[in-house]
Design a protein around this nucleic acid. Structure first.
Lengths: 200, 200
DNA sequence: CTGTATTTGGAACACTCGTTCCAAAAAAGA
DNA sequence: TCTTTTTTGGAACGAGTGTTCCAAATACAG
């Protein structure tokens, strides 16, 4: 009896993701969504509940795709260190190509302070990234590229921080030299013997 | 003949800075500003021109204060490396205390993609930070803590990236262990001999 | 004081915001 | 084909947006 929907819900979420990613939450109006998704207001509210709900669905879609992308970058390289380098370089390129950085990062900055559900999602994504980078660091230790005495969990946090920092750097600076220097110096710090004292 | 203004323009900019810092550009309405500054709409438009102009003035005020703060953190420490550590730790504390991170970083994420004047200001601030961190790296080399063969400009970029990354990390994670690990691993990467290869 | 220039208060502007509602259109089961 | 259930189109909602305008209040120069 029920009439079947004429649009692909998943495809619409993907389009909403693109829009929120590009313009952010506040600057994206429902009218923008109606225009960009080619969907009537009623259908939009019917299918997604409202602007905020749709935003969360779009963010979740991005987080899912993004973490898989990072996993691929880290694992498809011949060595763990090379995978880390590749992830840094690729994310910088992607950030300047799309010109809107990382959706999760943007959400963490714009919405997390006022919206607990966004903050929790960002926190969870960052934690997943740390897990991936920790695994990569561990693998690099097994491959003899990183001093096995170093704490892989701490390295995972450190690398994730650098990774997210690159999103910011790419916002204002083309990835010519700046990002290259960041990547080089970060990797040099990874693969050194680490005899220096780190406490005062 | 002219009647003198009854309010302190500088103080109002400071208050506007606090509000924009906390809520961001889009989420701060003119009504919010009127309430928070205790200023009439007319006076506000008279003195500052409009919301966007006031935002830029507030951002400039922040940038100015912030860069001086960082300069102090880096220079007041007994050694350069200790200054870098102190800057990292202090900025993480400050970011979680105020709960709204760094105004410049927030502006770079929220406004820079759509507003050229904001982007230029963020880029300029990041460049100033790189200059400060480069000087600190150079001083650390003179003090024998960092391998003099490394490029201080590249280190400045690297450290600024980590510094900005901490702003992001502090958005979602209290600075308990996460930031501490980031600081430790970054400094370990600085003060090592750096014999590892950084190219594939 | 008086006159004048400037700031102030507050209404009003046109517009957009996110959301709701209802009748018309359309698809699926009988 | 007819009925039923859901989607669709689009107007309408009240509230809020940034901005403008004008009269009333105010402080300074004479």
């Amino acid at each position: 009896m029920p009439r079947s929907p004429t649009f692909d819900r998943d495809a619409k979420i993907e389009q909403a993701m693109q829009l929120f990613w590009e313009k952010g939450y506040e600057a994206t109006s429902v009218q923008d969504l109606v225009d960009h998704l080619g969907l009537n207001r009623s259908s939009l509210y019917n299918a997604f509940g409202g602007k905020h709900d749709l935003y969360l669905e779009a963010l979740d879609r991005y987080r899912q795709e993004d973490i898989e992308w990072l996993r691929g970058q880290l694992q498809e390289a011949p060595t763990a260190v090379e995978g880390i380098r590749q992830a840094f370089v690729a994310v910088a390129e992607r950030a300047t190509e799309s010109c809107c950085g990382c959706f999760t990062t943007n959400a963490a900055v714009e919405c997390a302070p006022r919206d607990a559900s966004t903050q929790e999602r960002a926190r969870e994504s960052f934690e997943e990234m740390r897990s991936l980078f920790r695994a990569a660091a561990q693998r690099a230790q097994e491959e003899g590229a990183i001093d096995p005495a170093r704490d892989p969990a701490a390295l995972g946090r450190h690398l994730t921080n650098t990774y997210n920092g690159i999103h910011l750097t790419a916002k204002t600076d083309p990835p010519d030299e700046v990002v290259q220097d960041i990547v080089d110096e970060t990797l040099r710090g990874l693969t050194c013997s680490g005899h220096g004292s780190t406490t005062a």
